[in-house]
Design a protein around this nucleic acid. Structure first.
Length: 808
RNA sequence: GCGGAAGUGGCGGAAUUGGCAGACGCGCUAGAUUCAGGAUCUAGUGGGCUAAGCCCAUUGGGGGUUCGAGUCCCCCCUUCCGCACCA
């Protein structure tokens, strides 16, 4: 008899399909607590297909979904395609195919691969963000954001990817290069659409608190939002009507300000620069503009700068202090200008040293504190006039209040996050549903006219002009104004795919619904997502945007929850030959080959067994052999033996089973899927050993127990065996087994005996034994007595059910 | 520089609370089977010895707490990840 996984697996997949086994049970009367929504981050269709790294997350979310199904929940476990936008379009261009055609092919291939996983996806709910039925509501979202004053168009210096030839959001620029293609990102002035994510910065930060998410992701989002509390302070400029407003988190160091710095791009630079400094300032600005953002951000750089020849007046003491420009001050943060306190800020310290600017200490560190040349902590005020002796933290409040009363300062919270650039100068996306009318300005397309269809074109390549390819299609561009009816032009930008994916989780609950993005009743039954599974690379992209969208939808009254994903799990990546799998590195492991060689269940089990699911793991080509052998042996064992219903099963067998029901259940609950698999192996090894000693000793009930436990991991084989032991319905209609605590209590337990902390003996004792009995047994044990011979026993430590330690 | 995670056999890794270190698997060694290879099965797989037993070492390094530390505390080293002139 052979383990014919290639017959078993397709057979059960066919049966699942025919019986609608994976169709979501959506009972309108069902209580929310009976429904469970487990979502995978959906992929973009690439044509290269999935590799074993992609499988990992899908397998573990499927194991979890199947387990929850066996626990009695109605499961929503959908899949779809992030088919609009840069990733999908770039993939198509690379292949020289029209995006629509390429995406169709890629989806077919990836869907075949996803079927191989044997996941319980409900394909009736499949969504595709590039279908008009879907993007109609992406555009609807855009209109709603517009209505609420959260969308605006503005000419601004934006991030422009030189290779993708489009504007990018800040979140898409990583280390100065495009997150997608790795090409250089430059600044370009262009009118662009933005969403006011900054209005939600505070809430996005505050609500991180209650999320059952990996610490790492919450931290990354908190850093990205970057809240800092400080004050804005106004400095007058000597001999000049303009005022200089700066942001500082350290108003307590105002007396130590010995110079000011403006970002080179600051609008005041032009006005205040003295004639004799003009040449040097202009040259400096020129150089700054030539320096890439990437180079400018390198923190190890030596400080540079130029004097403007102008002076500011320190509002606390009337001192005149010189105004400099330097690229270490960023125009994009705060007011683009700072007061510099070299005594208490390392950056200012460096700058002051280089340019010979005075350094005045105003905060004395506490006594016991090791003094450095530049102390940035709290302390006692010195050199601060009448405030000397005050604690710096009290003075902080005091001086803001004092200056505030003269209109020169106010407390202010600053965020690092900026508004979200959402328009793309690319073809493959949902057109921005706006019309430009000479008379009426920017006018939204009426909801009833949605979707604004993306026209089919032959030339879809990006233009690089700052306009999308849509601008070259008169039939698309020319329209009439929805307000006045005069001739008007459509907006030709497309919507970033991050918007498509910001609300997709909502669509799955009612994918056919056509009176809005989702049926509110279905939303109430299924949302928010109970468990979300995906890679950590979306920490400050998709996950942040989705949260923002959800809060806006909540404010609109469209959804009744403030956070979309209650629980998040980030699976680790799979490496091979020391690096992340990528076609360019030639280290891809193709699941298709493994499926045909070892079968779907083996690959599923190995994806879990490879290591802790949240950690990165190195792929071992031979590792899958081990799980394959296990499944093969399980198959042969169950097929070649019979498990009678009415036998007097030894306690050893049942005790073993129940111990592992507990262990495996606990491990699944903790997402320790690697030890779920090793636990299943251990249990099988144990059962087989007992069976070898006493053939026929395993009851029908216990055999079923094993099949149930392995079902989430190896669903095809479990169905086959479930059928073999006499069931004609799916194993996933059965309930997850529960362990019997009393049975565990009846087992003998092993108590370890140590002498001075070193293992000397093991006792097998009935679990009900008393402390006295066990201690006595330990002291009288034949391995222990000789060791104790003639020595004084100082102490005997007993840990119930575990160990006796005899201290000499 | 700041923040986070991690460091355990030849390899992947296990060890909820401080209580048998190395489960499970890969690989390797020997044997069985086989014409042979592969596959499969059985046994072994930290070191030492006067070798069925006993002893010793051992969780990146050093110190500490404890009857007892991979696990807790302090110092140091290494790797990975995130942030990085954000005032």
């Amino acid at each position: 008899m052979k383990y014919m996984f290639n017959e078993i697996e397709p057979k059960w997949q066919k049966i699942w399909e025919e019986t609608g086994a994976h169709k979501t049970v959506d009972d309108p009367a069902a209580d929310r607590s009976k429904n469970y929504y487990c979502l995978d981050m959906f992929p973009y269709p690439s044509g290269e297909g999935l590799h074993v790294g992609h499988w990992r997350g899908y397998v573990l979310s499927d194991v979890w979904s199947r387990y929850m199904k066996m626990k009695g929940y109605n499961i929503l476990h959908p899949m779809g395609w992030d088919a609009f936008g840069l990733p999908a379009e770039n993939a198509a261009i690379k292949k020289g195919l029209h995006p629509k055609e390429n995406i169709g092919r890629s989806i077919a291939n990836m869907k075949r691969q996803l079927h191989d996983i044997g996941a319980m996806y409900d394909w009736d709910r499949e969504i595709n963000t590039s279908s008009p039925e879907y993007y109609k509501y992406t555009q609807w979202m855009f209109l709603k954001f517009m209505e609420r004053g959260l969308a605006y168009r503005k000419e601004a210096p934006i991030n422009w990817c030189t290779s993708c030839k489009t504007g990018l959001a800040n979140e898409e620029v990583v280390d100065g290069v495009c997150e997608r293609c790795g090409s250089e990102v430059v600044k370009k002035m262009l009118p662009q659409w933005f969403f006011k994510i900054t209005d939600y910065a505070e809430r996005l930060l505050d609500d991180l608190e209650g999320l059952d998410w990996p610490e790492r992701v919450r931290l990354m989002q908190a850093n990205w939002i970057g809240k800092s509390k400080g004050a804005e302070v106004i400095f007058k400029i000597k001999g000049h009507p303009d005022e200089l407003k700066i942001f500082t988190t350290r108003p307590d160091t105002l007396f130590g300000a010995t110079y000011m710095v403006l970002a080179p791009e600051h609008p005041l630079v032009e006005k205040i620069t003295a004639p004799e400094c003009r040449e040097a300032v202009m040259e400096y600005i020129d150089n700054t503009l030539k320096t890439s953002d990437l180079a400018r951000m390198a923190s190890e750089r030596e400080k540079t700068g130029a004097k403007t020849g102008a002076y500011a007046i320190n509002p606390v003491n009337g001192e005149e202090i010189p105004i400099w420009i330097s690229d270490y001050v960023l125009i994009t943060y705060g007011t683009g200008a700072i007061m510099a306190v070299p005594a208490h800020d390392t950056r200012d310290f460096e700058f002051a040293q280089k340019f010979g600017i005075p350094i005045i200490e105003v905060i004395k560190p506490p006594e016991n504190c090791e003094t450095e040349e530049c102390y940035a902590g709290e302390g006692t005020m010195i050199n601060s006039g009448k405030y000397n002796g005050m604690s710096s933290s009290d003075f902080w409040k005091e001086i803001v209040k004092d200056l505030g009363s003269r209109g020169l300062a106010e407390e202010k919270v600053n965020f690092r996050i900026h508004d979200w650039l959402v328009s793309r100068q690319r073809y493959w996306g949902a057109p921005v549903p706006m019309v430009h009318c000479e008379k009426c300005g920017i006018v939204p397309v009426p909801e009833s006219d949605l979707p604004v269809m993306l026209p089919h074109v032959d030339r879809y390549q990006p233009t690089g002009t700052g306009e999308s390819p849509l601008a070259a299609i008169p039939e698309f561009v020319n329209t009439t104004c929805p307000v006045c009816g005069e001739k008007a032009r459509r907006d030709t930008d497309t919507i970033s795919q991050w918007i498509c994916s910001s609300w997709y989780y909502l669509r799955y609950v009612s994918p056919e619904y056509d009176e809005g993005p989702a049926d509110k009743e279905a939303v109430r039954r299924w949302l928010p997502v109970d468990q979300y599974v995906g890679g950590v690379e979306h920490a400050v992209l998709h996950l942040l945007y989705s949260r923002f969208f959800t809060k806006v939808l909540y404010d609109m009254g469209y959804v009744n929850f403030k956070e979309p994903f209650t629980r998040l799990f980030n699976q680790g990546m799979i490496y091979r030959m020391g690096s992340k799998m990528a076609k360019s590195k030639g280290n891809i492991v193709n699941p298709d080959e493994l499926v045909s060689k070892y079968g779907r269940d083996s690959l599923r089990a190995y994806e879990l067994f490879i290591g802790p699911p949240e950690q990165d793991s190195e792929w071992d080509d031979r590792g899958i052999e081990g799980v394959y052998r296990w499944l093969r042996r399980v198959y042969l064992f169950f097929m070649q033996n019979n498990f009678p219903k009415n036998i007097d099963e030894p306690l050893l067998v049942r005790g073993l089973l129940h111990r592992y029901i507990k262990k495996i259940t606990d491990d699944i609950e903790r997402f320790h899927f690697n030890t779920v698999v090793s636990g299943l192996m251990e249990l099988f090894n144990g059962l087989q050993e007992l069976y070898d000693k006493e053939p026929g000793c395993i009851s029908h009930k216990s055999a079923e127990g094993y099949i149930l436990l392995m079902a989430p991991v190896a669903p095809h084989l479990a169905e086959e065996l479930w059928n073999k032991v006499g069931h004609d319905t799916s194993v996933f209609k059965a309930r997850w087994p529960e362990y019997d605590p009393e049975l565990l209590a009846q087992e003998n337990i092993t108590v370890v005996v140590q002498v001075n902390g070193k293992l000397k003996a093991r006792l097998s004792v009935p679990s009900g034994s008393s402390e006295e009995e066990i201690k006595a047994m330990a002291l009288n044990d034949e391995n222990i007595r000789p060791v104790l011979d003639g020595k004084d026993i100082r102490r005997v430590i007993y840990i119930p059910g575990k160990l006796v330690n005899i201290v000499l």
